[in-house]
Design a protein around this nucleic acid. Structure first.
Lengths: 120, 120
DNA sequence: CTTATATATTTAAGTAAATTATATATATAA
DNA sequence: TTATATATATAATTTACTTAAATATATAAG
């Protein structure tokens, strides 16, 4: 993923979220969708995307079906029941995280003089 | 950082933000402040925190001063001019990123049938 | 007085997750 | 025929964490 080093832990969850919404998507499509939703500010790299998809597959969270489109094999990914469950959990965790992060970034308060535990 | 694998690329920016706001803080204080602001949902690990502080120092983004408090050395960190500049940039980049991420996570639209570039 | 908990910093080892780069292949546009 | 778009795969490298352990002092609790 490119366009900010911030993506780091979030790729798996982003993929789960998109697949939870679309039933089936192929790799390239996922990169285009993220680009679109982010107004080109986030570009997934294939070197990150495909290994992550294989990992999710190996964990039983998604399954693949291959179709021939325009004479080329296209691999579609869709969530298993387990994948759907995890998607919900991960999406809500990440949403919570963005809220906290946002709160930290917009906070303007100063810490109180740090009291020792036994002073409080 | 613990309490979510989502932190990954964000620690440096969080530190810069807190120091931009407080002129000087010490390592332990930073962990407590993040815990407080996140209602204990994010706990920085020292293994992540201190190496990041040293890296920021080696990059000229902050300087340290040591004070003796309660008979123990305490190392205070504060931003250099360059650190302050970078803090602004990074905080606004990360804010933008959280907005995009939040948009992706809450989006409920389906992609159009993917048009080929030459079809659009 | 001994133990547990809190305060405070440091650093090594291991792992996970990305980036970068490369390879392969077909289709359409210029 | 060259460039760009579509599409997947994977190796090598780098970065950034987690986990764990070491060190040291202070206060609280029993």
């Amino acid at each position: 993923m490119t366009g900010g080093e911030f993506i780091k832990g979030t790729l798996k969850t982003i993929i789960l979220k998109l697949l939870a919404q679309n039933k089936q998507m192929y790799g390239y499509e996922i990169t285009q969708r993220v680009a679109q939703l982010s107004k080109d500010e986030i570009k997934l790299t294939y070197g990150a995307l495909y290994p992550t998809l294989y990992k999710l597959e190996s964990e039983g969270l998604l399954i693949t079906t291959t179709e021939i489109v325009d004479n080329r094999a296209r691999k579609y990914y869709s969530l298993t029941a387990e994948g759907k469950k995890l998607a919900k959990v991960k999406v809500s965790e990440l949403q919570r995280f963005t809220e906290i992060l946002s709160a930290i970034l917009t906070d303007s308060s100063k810490p109180n003089v740090t009291l020792k535990a036994w002073e409080s």
